[in-house]
Design a protein around this nucleic acid. Structure first.
Lengths: 350, 350
DNA sequence: CTTGCTTTTGACACCGGTGTCTTTTAGGAC
DNA sequence: GTCCTAAAAGACACCGGTGTCAAAAGCAAG
């Protein structure tokens, strides 16, 4: 508990006040703040005391100006889903908690044709040290190039490596999807449906590849009628469910590329009086809140999203976070997703 | 499309460059940037051209320093639910889009006993112009007082007026809950259960009051066994559902204080083979994504959360947002919630 | 007590803007 | 043309820090 003199005379103390009180020059105070090594223990102590007793907090704007560098990092996203953004954000904050950094969050409208200009303006104005790009905009190479051009560091977060390791944090979706689908096969499922994510999304492609790998591994094929397009929205799940579950020979299990669509498929199953999981096993992806809010609870794949946030921040600005922050060079930027088994999967009936 | 000279020679142009190019003093350029009125049209034009051709963007840190004021507003929240935070945030951004302001998002750990100190440090360091407090932390008077003391403007967002209108944006939960429950009554329901939100949350109290108002209005009573405590979590919904639906005479309808718990109740109903809405009507609150992802889709109450975000920003910093931003004094800070009817409500069986 | 070196400290300019006050310019009345 | 006044523009200090480089202090060796 430092003595809080509060806003005495209504003004924040400045470095000059500290210098005066400690009987040193402001530069010396600056050295203490920035942990310069060329300072005697005695002086450091005196300055520290003065800082404490005044409740001095360095003005970040002044520092930013003098350093010609802003202690800000930006999180750019196009709301893949709210929980993901917030968890990621929390991970970032875990990482920068004890540093001087602050986090700027910036939604980006992927659809707009002014998107690049908007981001450019934002980056030019705020000049953050670095930017973290969440999927799906992390897949946009122009955006990465823009950061590069503007001298803003960047990290791209995705379901697979999108760039060299220095600019990437990713999960291993393909493997984990293959593993999950492998479990369906092991339970005896032979007719397994697939609901895809939106075209042009890397995450969707990765999940599909993982799915196909597992089928190939088991020597199974994917008939056209068991393959549905989708866009990660609930309505697409409904459509896919309607289509597949009306078939003469419906699938006994489905892998759906995200939880929201999986909820749609499940709702169709309920509507048709099909019991889940007895008559239809469903696996989703995301481990969104929805996964446990529907009935039966959905087996799904979880991204280590908070950890990815920390990792992304550390990759981006390890040099601002103290000695242990930097991920070792030989450490892979791939963070493992996990398959979560809940109640929506069972062996096929009969 | 301004000519983008890009990062020529690797540096951002400064106000001095603009001044030199336009053949005026930097103060004059400053006047143009800040739309001072004492400037001739001719000079303004010349300066504008210079700005355009250099692609000059004023350095916000330098401005902040000189103005002794930071062009930042902060959003403090304790993740009431992810979608809410993000929607609110979007509303704020709608409002500040064309201004010089930027948004800083800061999660706060309500549980921590260092919470106040953390926030204080944050505010002292960043010195935002103002802070927006989302529920439930908006209900914390100490936090509001802290902002006051630090000279940081604030706006508290809540389900009811928490402070004077200058510091408040709220919804009219009580009324709308009463209206929703009124509809249950109108359909013929007489045994209506209630699942409460966490003790100590204003939002929970408001919803309960609305519920009781509607019952009183209809001359109905609320027997103890139809009143369940809760905490806004799914598991609490499960518990409440187990308790009420095991009764000899279960309710024919339930009002649940948020969607997440409502999903829990619904899942118990499914588990017991009760058909929703035929045998049990359910109303939730929040209009979270979950509401439409469960089956049947949940009737619920929607906060005008994005609009509240815009409104909060405008109340906070109307003086930075141009002439039309200020909400008129006689305009109420109460924004209307709406009852959304979906498939989880029907007349009682028999 | 000097000398010579290293460590510590300080003076002063500077980062890129704005505030204040002064000077210049423009325009109208005489 | 001169004078006066208001509008426009500029000079210079300042916001609160850091960089640079020179000066002071500390210390061992001579």
């Amino acid at each position: 508990m430092a003595a809080r003199t509060g806003g005495q005379n209504g003004k924040q103390p400045t470095i000059n006040d500290v210098a005066a009180l400690a009987g040193v020059s402001k530069k010396t105070v600056s050295r203490v703040i920035n942990r310069s090594e060329f300072i005697s223990e005695k002086t450091r102590k005196a300055v520290q005391d003065a800082i404490e007793s005044l409740g001095f907090v360095p003005n970040p704007q002044a520092r930013a100006l003098a350093f010609r560098r802003n202690f800000l990092i930006a999180l750019l996203h196009d709301n893949p889903n709210a929980q993901t953004v917030l968890n990621f954000q929390q991970g970032v904050l875990d990482a920068i908690k004890d540093s001087d950094l602050a986090l700027l969050v910036r939604p980006v409208d992927r659809g707009s044709d002014r998107m690049l200009d908007d981001v450019r303006t934002f980056l030019e104005k705020q000049r953050p040290i670095g930017a973290m790009l969440l999927p799906p905009i992390s897949e946009n190479d122009d955006l990465a190039k823009l950061c590069e051009d503007l001298g803003v560091r960047y990290v791209r977060v995705g379901s697979a490596l999108l760039d060299d390791a220095k600019h990437c944090v990713s999960s291993n979706d393909r493997e984990v999807v293959a593993e999950a689908v492998g479990k369906l096969v092991a339970l005896g499922h032979r007719r397994i449906g697939f609901v895809r994510g939106p075209v042009g999304f890397r995450s969707a492609a990765e999940r599909e590849e993982g799915f196909r790998e597992a089928l190939a591994q088991a020597g199974l094929s994917l008939p056209d009628e068991l393959y549905a397009p989708g866009n990660y929205r609930y309505a697409a799940g409904i459509e896919a469910g309607e289509a597949m579950l009306s078939l003469a020979e419906p699938p006994t299990a489905v892998f759906v590329s995200n939880d929201e669509m999986a909820a749609g498929v499940m709702s169709v199953a309920h509507g048709k009086g099909l019991s889940v999981p007895a008559e239809l096993s469903i696996i989703g992806f995301d481990d969104s809140p929805t996964a446990t809010h529907i009935w039966p609870a959905l087996s799904t794949v979880r991204w280590p999203i908070r950890e990815m946030g920390s990792r992304a921040a550390r990759t981006l600005v390890s040099d601002f976070l103290g000695p242990n922050a930097k991920p070792a060079d030989d450490e892979s930027p791939v963070m493992p997703s996990t398959f979560i088994e809940r109640q929506s999967v069972a062996p096929p009936k009969a």
